[in-house]
Simulated assay, not measured.
Amino acid sequence: MAIQVLFFGQLTDIAGNAIGIPVAETLRGLEQELWAQFPLLKEKKYALSVNQKMVAGDISLTEGDVVALLPPFSGG
């Protein structure tokens, strides 16, 4: 299963713009894998979206999903 992971804002300094993850069945499993690859991510605050929809909690992932890590942002 291939999942694309996108990073935005300050998170790109840690992980770059995008990576592919070959296996992740759940959002929490993906997060654990990302923390193993990029330990500094664990210290950062961010929201998660799957296929351009904000999500909370653990959900199942399927091949082709796009997961984005979005740091806090403000607007005006």
Rank of each mutant, 00 (worst) to 15 (best):
I3N: 06
T12N: 07
I59E: 10
T62Q: 13
Q52G: 01
L34R: 07
W35A: 09
A56C: 05
D65I: 09
L48R: 10
Q37A: 14
D58C: 04
F38Q: 04
G9K: 05
F38H: 10
L48G: 01
G29F: 10
S60F: 12
M54R: 01
I59H: 04
G57V: 09
G16F: 01
V67E: 03
E33C: 08
G64D: 09
T26H: 11
M54H: 02
A18P: 07
P39C: 04
L41E: 04
Q4K: 15
A15R: 01
P71F: 02
P71K: 04
G29S: 14
E31V: 13
L48T: 10
G20T: 15
G75H: 00
L70V: 11
I14W: 00
A36V: 13
I59L: 14
D58N: 14
E43T: 14
F8V: 00
F7A: 03
E25Q: 14
L40I: 05
S49I: 00
Y46C: 00
I19N: 03
V55F: 00
E31L: 13
T62S: 12
P39Q: 05
F38R: 05
D58R: 05
G9I: 05
G20W: 12
N17M: 03
E63R: 02
A56R: 14
I3A: 08
V55P: 04
I21D: 10
Q37Y: 06
K45A: 13
G75F: 02
Q37S: 14
G64Y: 04
A18Y: 06
S60R: 15
A18F: 11
